[in-house]
Write a protein that binds this DNA or RNA. Structure first.
Lengths: 252, 252
DNA sequence: ACAAAAGTGTTCTGAATACACCCATGG
DNA sequence: CCATGGGTGTATTCAGAACACTTTTGT
């Protein structure tokens, strides 16, 4: 048998394998790199509601600000992917996180068709905790006051606006502001959160009346210290009562 | 040059092309067949709220009942895909349609990873309009009373339940029941829709007071005919006033 | 006349709003 | 003693809930 003939036979086998594989791959679409989740992560600091933004270090939109997001991997649910993103950027786990909308315009991503499932999250900001981007795609991450959000990459401004609308409405029928505060907090702090989210002043007496009437706050025998005015009482959330009142609705 | 050598050279070119193509394809994920939309289509008939179900004619879940749904194509937005599904099954266009949740558990589809963006829709049922499945995947389509929904394929029972919760809540702050009724309707019909969605009896006087107070109904100088009891007045929705009152909220 | 649904008002309660002054603390 | 935010009560308004009888129409 000639040398070329042998090579040809081996080659044929190789080619057949490749063709078979390419046909199989056509029949079996790959999930990877089609769906992302983007997270609008809210935090509360210095009396201002802030959102976590990242500066992109990769195409497309290199150098632009954007919401943190990654591809959903094949082995994880979308919720898990969102929790993963939160962990990467904040180091926190088991965070308050809710899916609120899926964005799927044809041209929302400049390179190819990608749809994104958007979540909002609320976390307790620890003073001094640095936000270190644990991803090479990212130059840095910052907490940006919601009134100062710049132009963002992709359709992320639209996503951010929609998340704001959603939490505003949500706050109307369900007190979820506790997620932004430390374990113990004063009623004034709570009110400041509400005012930051709703973007309007509230009446102190009415606010306190309403909150205390829910019956979901426990008064602590502890007061502020070191303030140059009357010390405020600390409260904490009574999770049991909160759940029995509102948990059913969380799924709605 | 030998025959085998010539063939080998041609073969080499062929192989190189295939390999290059397969590498390119790896770099460029295909959007197709990864994302579906499922629609919970509500209709109102004989005083009962109904949902459109299809009997599947294809694997997986052949012979099972399910919600109508298809893959999102690369060239269309998710909203457009949902409108397309509605058109296929009902022959209607520009329908009231809202995205409400995206379901993405890893194993929700038995064969491979598929996520689905779920919508609910409300349509006016025309008496006698046949629902002809325009798709070979489907044996038949029926309007099923929401209290008699059987076990469905995939996670469609979960999707259906969530859609019900959503429209119940929505009805609380926004009258969207008109979408289910004909152009002109009586207040009793409207009340029946509310009772069907909320699954509870409402007080007639309070209901009428509330609806008329919205100021979004126009009284018509026309009454029911051929009924063996006092004829009811017909009303129609004042779209202009409805929009100015509620349209802003639709996007929330 | 009767069956069947249309149409109509008042009362009560609870929640949201508006509004102004004294209290406690640190400097 | 003063600056600063903490803490408190009452009156009003509005929406939602409860509740029963008369009217109209076809048979």
């Amino acid at each position: 048998m000639s040398y070329y003939k042998k090579v040809l036979i081996i080659f044929s086998i190789f080619v057949t394998t490749i063709i078979r594989k390419s046909i199989l791959e056509k029949d079996e679409p790959k999930f990877e790199k089609i769906v992302t989740t983007d997270c609008v992560i809210f935090g509360f600091e210095d009396g201002v509601l802030k959102v976590l933004l990242i500066e992109r270090n990769d195409h497309p939109f290199e150098g632009w600000w954007a919401l943190p997001g990654f591809f959903v991997e094949e082995h994880e649910s979308i919720d898990e992917a969102a929790q993963r993103i939160l962990h990467i950027y904040t180091g926190l786990k088991d965070i308050f996180l809710e899916q609120f909308y899926t964005f799927g315009s044809v041209n929302r991503h400049p390179q190819r068709r990608i749809i994104t499932v958007a979540y909002y999250a609320m976390i307790r900001l620890k003073q001094g905790r640095a936000l270190l981007p644990s991803s090479p795609d990212v130059k840095r991450a910052v907490w940006c006051p919601i009134s100062e959000v710049p132009q963002l990459g992709f359709d992320h401004n639209e996503i951010f606006e929609k998340s704001l609308q959603k939490i505003k409405r949500r706050l109307g029928y369900q007190p979820l502001a506790f997620e932004l505060l430390p374990e113990k907090f004063t009623l004034s702090q709570l009110q400041t959160v509400y005012e930051a989210v709703l973007n309007k002043k509230l009446d102190k007496r009415n606010f306190r009346k309403k909150m205390l009437n829910y019956g979901i706050l426990k008064t602590l025998n502890e007061k502020q210290k070191g303030v140059s005015f009357r010390a405020a009482a600390y409260y904490k959330l009574d999770r049991r009562k909160f759940n029995s009142l509102f948990q059913k609705e969380l799924s709605l």
